[in-house]
């Protein structure tokens, strides 16, 4: 397979396949998870301000009091790489172009130099998170193959995308193809790994918030 055929495959059938597996996986997993049902709480509810599923969905985006100090790397590193990924994916010109092609809507983008810088910062934060996972006893203890694998699967699209735009190591055609391929792998892996938290965290926060809101506790 030549470079261009590889790129054409990744942009064409590869992306078709990845998007298909992604959609299939997401729907399957969401239905599988959320149709398990739960019992109605029969206890008389107590109402309290700020206590609801929705409140918790938002509130959990900020560290609870005292936690930032206890685990600064997890929080700061986590924020930086999540926000970095969001900036790159949703404000990078080629990505917005992709979204426009997919769903027909677009919005202003950030200069590519800024996106490049964001990619570097994001990768630094991810490397820091990886080091933390290796160093910190609790994280190392909890880590399974999946944790290392999903780290790599998330890191590679950022790395290859950055290398493609910076013209590093491989010709643009090949690097772009590798970048798209790595993003496709991410799409395929996402519904079937802990990366699915991107979807389920809303459900989890909502359940937690709701269960405790019934008791009048804003969590």
């Amino acid at each position: 397979m030549t470079d261009l055929q590889f790129l054409t495959w990744t942009r064409g059938p590869g992306l078709d396949l990845a998007v298909a597996v992604f959609l299939l996986g997401v729907l399957w997993r969401l239905i599988e998870i959320y149709t398990l049902g739960r019992k109605k709480d029969l206890a008389a509810p107590r109402h309290a301000p700020g206590a609801s599923g929705l409140h918790t969905v938002f509130r959990r985006s900020l560290p609870p009091p005292g936690m930032l100090k206890r685990s600064p790397v997890s929080y700061i590193g986590g924020y930086v790489f999540h926000i970095g990924l969001a900036i790159i994916v949703f404000l990078g010109a080629p990505h917005v172009l992709l979204i426009k092609n997919l769903v027909g809507v677009s919005w202003p983008t950030l200069p590519s130099q800024f996106i490049g810088l964001t990619a570097v910062v994001t990768m630094a934060a991810m490397v820091l998170m990886l080091a933390d996972r290796i160093n910190k006893p609790v994280k190392r203890f909890l880590s399974t193959f999946e944790d290392w694998f999903t780290w790599a699967v998330t890191f590679l699209p950022v790395l290859t995308g950055w290398m493609a735009t910076q013209h590093l190591l491989l010709p643009y055609t090949q690097m772009l193809a590798l970048h798209i391929l790595s993003a496709e792998i991410l799409l395929v892996v996402l519904p079937f790994s802990k990366l699915f938290h991107g979807f389920t965290l809303f459900g989890s926060r909502w359940y937690n918030g709701r269960v405790n809101a019934h008791k009048g506790v804003p969590v």
Binding site: R29, E32, I33, Y34, T35, L36, G37, R38, K39, M67, S71, S74, G78, K136, V138, K139, F141, L142, S143, T144, D147, K194, F196, H197, T200, L201, G203, S204, Y207, N208, V211
Partner: peptide, 17 residues
């Protein structure tokens, strides 16, 4: 085992917090 438990396990990212 119910939907909240399923959602919780699927959400865990092993952050150790």
């Amino acid at each position: 085992i119910d939907a909240p438990i399923a959602s919780y396990f699927e959400s865990c990212v092993h952050c150790g917090l």
